[in-house]
Design a protein around this nucleic acid. Structure first.
Length: 646
DNA sequence: GAAGGTCACGCCCTCTGCTGGAGGTAA
DNA sequence: ATTACCTCCAGCAGAGGGCGTGACCTTC
């Protein structure tokens, strides 16, 4: 692996082979750590004006400088000389090829001027894209030359400071070997140190980190990386993908520090560190060296700490005990997380789109998918896609038919634990919770069904629902149903002369004739008159139809025959002590019993009309001469009218 | 090197709500 | 006998909580 610590070259002089000017944010975007891209502002562009001696390339904030020579004797000395160009300077010097918008791609070529140490930095447009700049087209402002020994330099930093609004003002550059006593100390302090007589308000936006590292192996080249250190802006302008994730302050502070101190850069991954020790430790992470092996499962770990934590998972050792409950954990991190979940309820990760907050950032990311609609876990058997792995796994049971949850009582199986829980609660538990409708007091077993009930029966509907019995209209289905029930068994027709009431008008008409004495139906054979047509028909059959066979009720005890069940036969049967059996309670039962005893019904021919016929045979008719109705109680007009209806 | 903190991934759980079939009931 | 309606019930998915584990970085 190519180390990034600056070695001591064998050659006398160190040549700057490659100088990268990389936006820190742009780099972090590549890293996937911080997704904020720092576009090169005009001010930054000014600060990035570099000598013609170098060959830079600006690509979305990235500037590479190639081939610059630095010579010194005895030591490896790097001399930086920088040019600052203001926007006015750019316009004045016809450098319109510079991007108006930062995202515009532009290639800048910087070439060395003269030989030996580069003393001027020039900006030059790509071939064919602009006028070839001359020395006069570049503005050279207050170049401060300093020499630093690369043997002592791990991080080289310089600042571009400008009094805001004064484009022509001198620039001050500061070169600092990190960790040394140079003009700037590395880290956060570097970005805050005023250099050259005070820091303007916007000065920190123009800090750059210059990272020196060796070039190709065996050469005496040094690669410089210039990074923008716009730390504050990164915090204030999160990327779209990060907009919904608010990091806790500690994390932000940590990243801020990390961003400033980066100097050693891993060639395999994006890791950078200002500390050699940290870097070296990091390098080991890219090796598969795991010398610490668990004696229980033979799993290997890189560090003793990791191994110890792992062994604790075998032994159950949980040294980190919660002070507020009985829980204990293998690591302190678990304890902290547990305390946040259970005790402190601290939720540092807050959603920017709703009030949701979580203990863990992973939960916030999962939550964010409910806003974005992202479903990164597709089912390979159907079109379903899940927002997290667990839902996909649960969904796959619908394809496999797996029902891992079994009721311990009836052994019914279920696909989800919640379904089984409801099953046990509803089927096998006492004190089953019920849900009462607040509008109609209906008791429903499940809350979700109560919701359906409310939706179907108690939701206002714009369309009118009309009662099938009357002109009333309703907008709630429950009200309509309740109203229509009021029509059931409703005796709307009430007699003015007595307490009689009935459901149909024609029944009332017949009843009123009992008060008025009106008998509109006359017998054509004997001129006898009747109030109802049915009564007339009965009369005619009995007295004027020779084929008519009247029903005769026989006492099951003594065999005596009666023409009327309720008034004669029943009274007789109750008092008859010649037999044990009493009449059945219903006509059907009576009929069946009678047939059982006597066989098929036999018509008993009467010899002549009963004496009652002389009176008013139509006044009282059998409740059910064919044994259809239980003739308990008094016969009412309604009973008669029911017969008429038949 | 150890300890502590952070991060990421995974697993499992609960709660919630919707849906549609089954079965009972009334019209 | 048919039909409409309602509740019961299981199936299923959405969302979130809590914990286990390992890796990695920073600090001491």
């Amino acid at each position: 692996m190519a180390a990034t610590e600056v070695p001591v070259p064998s050659d006398q002089f160190t040549k700057i082979k490659e100088l990268e000017l990389v936006s820190e944010k742009a780099r972090e975007e590549e890293d996937g750590v911080c997704r904020v891209r720092e576009w090169l502002s005009p001010g930054n562009m000014e600060a990035q004006a570099v000598p013609r001696a170098l060959l830079p390339r600006i690509l979305e904030g990235e500037l590479e400088l190639v081939s610059a020579s630095v010579e010194d004797s005895e030591k490896h000395v790097l001399t930086l000389q920088t040019v600052h160009l203001t926007s006015e300077d750019l316009a004045m010097n016809q450098m319109s090829w510079l991007p108006a918008q930062p995202q515009d791609e532009v290639q800048v070529t910087v070439q060395p001027v003269g030989s030996g140490l580069p003393t001027l930095l020039w900006l030059q447009p790509p071939l064919g894209e602009g006028p070839e700049p001359t020395v006069h087209q570049c503005v050279t402002i207050s170049i401060q030359d300093e020499l630093y020994s690369l043997q002592e330099t791990e991080v080289v930093q310089f600042q571009v400071l400008e009094e805001s609004g004064e484009a022509s003002e001198d620039l001050t550059f500061a070169l600092s070997p990190a960790g040394s006593t140079g003009p700037l100390e590395g880290g956060q302090e570097a970005a805050q140190l005023p250099v050259g007589g005070g820091l303007p308000e916007q000065a920190e936006e123009q800090f750059f980190l210059v990272e020196a590292r060796p070039g190709e192996e065996g050469s005496d080249e040094i690669v410089l990386t210039i990074s923008s250190l716009h730390v504050e802006e990164r915090e204030d302008k999160p990327s779209p993908s990060e907009a919904s994730v608010e990091k806790p302050k500690s994390a932000k502070k940590r990243r801020k520090t990390k961003g400033v101190k980066r100097a050693f850069r891993c060639d395999i991954c994006t890791f950078t560190s200002a500390r050699l020790s940290s870097f070296n430790r990091h390098v080991k992470t890219h090796t598969n060296e795991k010398p610490h092996t668990c004696h229980l499962c033979l799993k290997a770990f890189r560090t003793v700490t990791l191994l110890r934590n792992h062994v604790n998972t075998h032994t159950g050792t949980r040294p980190h005990k919660c002070g507020d409950c009985d829980m204990a954990f293998v690591t302190s991190g678990e304890l902290i997380r547990h305390r946040r979940y259970r005790h402190t309820h601290e939720k540092p990760f807050k959603c920017s789109m709703c009030k949701y907050a979580s203990v863990e950032v992973s939960k916030l990311k999962r939550h964010a998918r409910s806003h974005t609609g992202e479903r990164p876990f597709p089912c390979h058997l159907c079109s379903y896609a899940s927002r997290d792995t667990y839902k996909l796994k649960r969904h796959m049971r619908t394809h496999s038919g797996e029902k891992p949850y079994e009721c311990h009582v009836c052994h019914a199986r279920f696909t989800q634990s919640g379904t089984m829980k409801i099953h046990i609660l509803q089927k096998h538990s006492e004190n089953v919770p019920k849900y009462e409708c607040p509008h109609c007091a209906t008791i429903i077993a499940r809350k979700s069904d109560l919701r359906v009930h409310l939706r179907n029966l108690h939701t206002y509907r714009a369309a009118e629902m009309r009662c099938r019995y009357c002109p009333d209209v309703f907008h709630e289905r429950y009200a309509l149903i309740q109203h229509q029930k009021t029509h059931k068994n409703e005796k709307r027709f009430k007699c003015e002369h007595c307490s009689y009431a009935c459901k149909q008008e024609r029944h009332m008409t017949a009843h009123v004739r009992t008060h008025t004495g009106e008998k509109p139906f006359a017998c054509l054979s004997c001129n006898k008159r009747f109030r109802q047509k049915q009564l007339l028909n009965t009369h005619f059959k009995k007295y004027h139809d020779s084929d008519f066979i009247p029903t005769v009720y026989e006492c099951p005890k003594c065999g005596k025959a009666f023409s009327r069940w309720w008034s004669n036969m029943r009274r007789h049967s109750e008092n008859c002590d010649s037999g044990q059996e009493k009449p059945a309670t219903s006509g059907k039962e009576r009929r069946m019993k009678r047939r059982k005893q006597t066989g098929p019904r036999e018509a008993v021919k009467r010899e002549g009309p009963p004496s009652s016929c002389a009176g008013d045979p139509g006044e009282m008719v059998p409740g059910d001469s064919r044994g259809g109705k239980d003739p308990k109680g008094d016969v009412t007009c309604e009973m008669i009218l029911n017969l008429m209806d038949k």
